[in-house]
């Protein structure tokens, strides 16, 4: 195990860095995109409901690998060339954002109607009320499920391995196939994933306690 790391630390670290980078980017954008579609679903405009619904149902009901492949293989044929990392990160972002949208929508709807009413009667616009009053309370409710989704996101970033995204999984596969030391390689890879997911999981639990 130590051998795998000492001999291949450069590839592993590169993979670890790419996995971390992909996760951070996808987390940031899926949170923004997901929250936006969640807001679409609580706005009084039917057309936005439909747009939100379609987006969520499409991206959450197609395998992540298919979405990743679409951006890696199909999009470059017709639009712009994307490297594996970009294609995989976009796919992961869209996929995760559909789950986050569902979660955040449930959170928004769990906030008492009186909060929005109080804010509107107080002169705030819908978006001001959303941003300052509703969303902070909604996020408080949904920290546990969001935490699960963040952890899934990190694990799902291994989809990059299939689109030549040079992530941790990709590097692990490469090392395993050259050294044939599959056992130790995948254990090291697993440990490196834990180094990201465990602190994330504890941080979310800490947030949950702190904001409760």
């Amino acid at each position: 195990m130590i051998n795998v790391f000492t001999q291949h630390w450069q590839e592993l670290l590169l993979g670890f860095g790419n996995t971390l980078l992909c996760s951070v980017i996808a987390l940031f954008f899926s949170l923004i995109i997901g929250s936006t579609f969640a807001i679409f679903e609580v706005l009084p405009y039917k057309i936005l409901h439909i747009v939100g619904r379609v987006y969520i149902e499409v991206f959450r009901n197609i395998p992540l690998l298919v979405i990743g492949m679409f951006f890696y293989v199909v999009v470059p044929q017709f639009f712009v060339t994307l490297d594996g990392f970009t294609a995989g990160t976009i796919g992961l972002t869209l996929y995760t954002s559909s789950f986050i949208a569902e979660t955040v929508r449930a959170g928004i709807q769990a906030v008492d109607d009186g909060q929005m009413e109080g804010a509107r009667a107080n002169g705030m616009s819908f978006m001001q009320a959303m941003w300052h009053i509703i969303l902070p309370q909604a996020f408080r409710y949904v920290i546990p499920p969001l935490g699960n989704q963040f952890i899934n996101l990190v694990k799902n970033s291994s989809v990059l391995a299939f689109v030549a995204g040079f992530d941790l999984m990709y590097q692990g596969d490469a090392i395993a196939s050259t050294t044939f030391d599959t056992f130790n390689t995948y254990i090291v890879v697993g440990i490196l994933y834990l180094i990201i997911t465990l602190p994330l999981s504890y941080y979310m639990r800490y947030l949950e306690k702190k904001l409760a």
């Binding site: 009186g114 909060q115 009413e117 109080g118 009667a121 002169g123 300052h132 408080r140």
Partner: peptide, 21 residues
């Protein structure tokens, strides 16, 4: 409507204070 609400306040039965503030 925000113009009206700036000048006409409302007090509710269930207070509707902002719980996160």
């Amino acid at each position: 409507l925000n113009q009206i609400r700036k000048d006409v306040g409302m007090v509710f039965q269930h207070f509707n204070l902002y719980d996160n503030k």
